[in-house]
Structure formats: C-alpha cells, structure tokens
Amino acid sequence: MSVTPALPRSLSTEQRAFVAALREFARRECGTREQRDALAAESGGPHAPSLYARLAGLGWLGVCLPEAYGGAGGGMTDACLFLRETSRGLVPAGGFITSVITAKAYERFGSEEQRKAACGGVVAGQVLSIAMSEPGAGSDVAALRCRADRTPEGGWLVNGHKTWISNAHLAEHILLVARTDSGGAKQEGLTMFHVPARTPGVEIRPIETMGGREVNDVYFTDVRLPADAVVGTVDRGWSQLMAGLNAERLFLAANMLGLGERVFEDTVAYVRGREQFGRPVGSFQALRHRLADLATEIECARLLVFDLAAACDAEPERLFPREASMAKLKATETAKLAALEGMQMMGGYGYATEYDMERHLRAAVVSTVYGGTSEIQRDIIGRNYGL
C-alpha cells in the first residue's frame, strides 16, 4: 500500500502535471543515497549548485515570480507545491527558499531595475539572501543596530554585524535591513537596501552547524551604497517586512510539510521491513498507533498549508498573520515530532549515518527556530485573539 501523500483537491491539470514532473525529477536526480551524498559534497550543505542550475534550466525557480522577469507567473499554491515536493524528494535546493522570500520583497517594493536584478536573477539560478538578525536582535528583530547613514554625496555608509544569515555565502545579492533613524520607536527608522554580495566592505564568515554550511555572520565595514540602493521607502522597512510575512512563513511551512511527509514514508518503509519476535515491528500496536497519530498530524498540516496558500492567491494584498503563524508552527513542529518518532522507531539505525533519518532530524529541529521560533508564532497567534 502506497504512502504517497495526497494532493489538494482543487489543483488544476497543469498543477498536477507540475507535481508529477517534480517527483520524477527527484526520483531521477536524488533517488539514491549515493546521488544525495555526491550532491551534498558540492557545497558542504543542503544546496547543490549543479542541480540548482538544472532546476533553473527547467524554468521552475521562477514558479511564483512575474512573467515580466522570466518567471512562470504562478501563485502561492504553485510555490508551495514546489517547496513541498523538492523537500519531500530530498532535492538539495536549499538556496531557493531565501531567494524566493527575498525576491517577493523586491517584487513588492523594489524599483524596476532592482526587480530585474533580483527576480530575473532568481529565475536564472542566482541565490538571494536577506540580512535581518543580529547578535542582539533575533526574535526581537526590530532591536537591530546595524546602521546606514547618509553621506554628503547622497549615498549611504553602512556599518554593523548580521548573524545567522542563511545562504549569504551563495548569494549574488543581499537584502539588508538597517537602521536609518534612531529617533522614534524601535520599529521605526528601518530601511531595506539592495547590496551586491561582493560590494567592498562586505565580509561573509561561515557558522558551522549540525546541518553543514547554511548560515553566516555578515560584517559591513564602511560599506558605501548609492542613493538608489534603497528598496522601497526610507524608514519604512518594518512595515515592508510585515507585508512579506505571509510568504515567508507559508514557504517555510510548505518546506517542512514535505520533510515531514518524507520522514513518515521512510519510517513506514523501515517498520514494514524490520522484523523482531518473528513479525514486522510495524505490526505491533505500540508503533502502529504512533504512526496513525503522525499521519493525522501531517494531514492536518497539509490542509492548513494549502488552505492558506489558496487564501493568499485569492486575496494577494491581504495579510494573514494568524494563519501564517499557525501554518509555520504546525508544519515545523510536526516535522520535528515525525523525525524524533522516526528515529525512535528505527532504534539504533535511526541514529546511524547509513540512513537518512539523522539528517531528517537535524533539518527538522532547526525549523522550529528560524523564521520566527515556535514560541514567537504562538505569541502572535495569541495576540490575534486579543490576549
């Protein structure tokens, strides 16, 4: 009996064909452990440049970006299908999620030239990164201190330290959020800047993690930017960030939904084949019931993710802060639970590098931290009920 996850019932014929093509690509390019190990060796992390270039060649990286910049013009549902299937298929395209989140900010607020560089670059296979967090500004991102000061020539001079910046080492451009005014509340006086990653004064240093090279410290030392580097409006960076929360949290949720589904499939395959006391271990009620609970939780996450995606497509300008936080919370916590349960049910083999489960666990655990911790998501949800 297949455990292939269900598709949303509302998908079009074209979307179903897209999913089928993604699944075949993952099977062909990343279907064996040997293939995945070879791809992982390219960058020491979850991004393989050679495979990413093939995704660009197929036109898939522009799935939800405007046709005017080479994209497919799809919506949030299409992006979620891509993220879910590449994650489920263990496709090492780790640079995509920061790229598409950043590109959507440029699409909404950037100048025409900035949109061409960012959106067009993503379609062509470039990676983008967004630099918000700092040593003293993580969950409280509005407390950031990296400064951009006006120069006599009309440009900007940037100094500061950003940390935990995903994919900065792969990025062609970095979308920087810096403080341009300290006179008001901490949410005021923030501005977005378009920064080519190789701009003089930008230094990117890796932070070693359990997942390999994914995140970085980024130092800005007397970085000079032209006046037209501003993305959107000076001192309005906070409201611009808030406008992108639907996309960021939904994309992260779709990504972890796919991982949770893959963990479940791998666990079921193992417990069907592993025998103890003369029978498959999956036939014991203790494991069968745990898998039933996991399957139910994953299905709830799937329904939540794709219902929100459909709502965003129907009302593109509306913010869904409660639902976006719910989707991110549910999908990431479910993926973490699935990986922990999968490791337990596989016993020692779940811990061994011979199997994928230990990789799944490393990827799932950190998902409840980045993009807003689970605690922050719960706080946002609570505030939306007036609490």
Rank of each mutant, 00 (worst) to 15 (best):
G348C: 04
L304Q: 13
H289Q: 14
G258V: 06
E341C: 06
L252D: 11
V281T: 09
H360A: 05
D307F: 00
L303D: 14
G260Y: 11
E315L: 12
G372A: 08
M256C: 02
L308H: 00
E323C: 01
G372Q: 08
G347P: 02
E265G: 02
E299H: 10
M346W: 14
I298F: 03
A295I: 01
G342R: 05
T368K: 10
E299L: 09
P280G: 02
L245K: 12
A335C: 15
G258W: 08
T267A: 07
A314I: 04
A310Y: 00
E275V: 12
V369Y: 14
L340I: 08
V263T: 12
K336S: 14
L304T: 12
C300Q: 14
L329N: 05
G371N: 06
D293W: 00
Y349A: 10
T334P: 05
T332C: 15
A364V: 04
F284S: 09
S239R: 13
A331F: 03
A339L: 07
E333C: 08
F306M: 09
C312D: 01
R279S: 11
G278N: 08
V263S: 00
S283H: 06
D313Y: 01
A364Q: 05
L337I: 01
D313W: 03
Q276V: 08
R288P: 01
A253R: 08
P280H: 00
R318Q: 13
A331V: 04
A364S: 15
M326A: 15
N246L: 07
V263C: 09
T296P: 00
L308R: 02
L308T: 02
G282C: 05
L303P: 00
Q344K: 09
Y370F: 15
L245V: 13
M357Q: 13
G348T: 03
L319R: 14
G350W: 11
G278Y: 06
E299M: 03
M345L: 12
A243C: 04
D235H: 14
D266R: 14
C312N: 03
E275C: 11
L250D: 03
C300D: 14
A247L: 01
L303S: 11
L361V: 10
A292H: 02
L252S: 07
A269W: 02
R359N: 10
F251A: 11
A247T: 09
R274D: 03
G348K: 06
A253F: 12
S325C: 15
M343G: 13
G371K: 08
A338R: 10
E354H: 08
A327G: 03
F306Y: 15
M256G: 00
Y270K: 01
E323P: 00
A352G: 01
A311P: 00
E315F: 07
V366N: 05
L329H: 12
K328C: 11
A253S: 11
A331W: 07
G371W: 09
G342F: 09
A310H: 02
V263I: 15
R318F: 04
M357G: 01
L340M: 15
V369K: 11
E358H: 07
E317I: 00
N246D: 13
L329I: 00
F284Y: 15
Y270E: 04
F306D: 06
L361G: 01
T373H: 11
Q276M: 10
N255W: 10
E358R: 13
A314H: 04
R359L: 12
K330G: 03
